[in-house]
Design a protein around this nucleic acid. Structure first.
Lengths: 152, 152
DNA sequence: CTTTAATACGTGTACATACACGTATTAAAA
DNA sequence: TTTTAATACGTGTATGTACACGTATTAAAG
């Protein structure tokens, strides 16, 4: 869908300005589609993200700070997301033996099962919804990283 | 900044998968930088967005539904955002004369002043932070719209 | 005219974001 | 050794997101 149609606006100050709106809108579009799939599994977008991070290192444990550093949205409140996952028995909390300030988190077998099933649905959805080629995705990656070149 | 560095992850299933993460991260990066500028004016990202929509049609009034349709994040709770703006006297609410179900919103002179001052800061920041050219921004726009080709 | 449906907005709740602050633990400096 | 700073996590508050539901008004059907 064209951006003009999506936000009912036709006047943009520049192509760069339009690109910022386009990035923001596309991100919302992605999150919305993903959340729709995850709802069936009782997971939010961010809970899913935490489970993926944990599974990526499994059976290694990660502390809260490690998880936070791997989150896409850096200002996520990781302890609270873990609260919800712990209630659902999808992860386990324990105090680190080496450093008692650290809380180490492990994904449970139930967590792995839910993650695998939901990942399958999410990837099917991506396959259906995404029409860009690998080559186009690669170009997109280059342009987005160029956009963030100057770190703030 | 490279995505690998930003989310401390090096393994992506495909360029398309990496592109989805890149879009989500770039959107977060944009919102964070903008919020930093807006903080000085006591505005949130979404409050600023509503003010811009109102100014775009000024002195025409807009009803809540019109504003919602122009928002980037469609699931925003517009009445509540207007609550905050009304408290700060940046917008005014009134019941429509034609249709008593409608609430029409007008940006105040104070609202215009705050919007203009904050827009100046935001655009200065964009000018400093963005390194992509007009041509690259145009390519980015094409690729993002291609990504959303299949509407869901 | 009365009933029913659609529309426009507002509210309530669970979860998340953004950020300030508190507590416990560890490391470093005086 | 005692004090101070840094670190890791958790909590509190305001705001925003996502969605269900309630109320008032308008339009349409019977």
């Amino acid at each position: 869908m064209k951006l003009e149609q999506a936000i009912q606006s036709t006047k943009f100050k520049s192509e760069v300005h339009k690109a910022t709106l386009n990035i923001l809108y596309t991100a919302w579009w992605l999150k919305t589609m993903m959340s729709k799939e995850l709802k069936e599994f009782g997971l939010t977008h961010e809970q899913y993200n935490v489970l993926r991070i944990l599974k990526g290192k499994y059976p290694e444990q990660l502390c809260v700070r490690d998880i936070a550093g791997r989150m896409i949205e850096k200002s996520s409140n990781v302890p609270r997301i873990i609260d919800r996952l712990e209630t659902k028995k999808l992860v386990k909390r324990a105090t680190s033996l080496e450093d008692k300030r650290e809380t180490v988190i492990t994904i449970t077998q139930a967590g792995i099962a839910v993650l695998d099933a939901s990942t399958q649905m999410v990837e099917k959805m991506y396959g259906d919804a995404f029409t860009i080629s690998t080559k186009e995705a690669a170009e997109l990656n280059i342009l987005l990283e160029k956009t963030r070149e100057k770190e703030v």
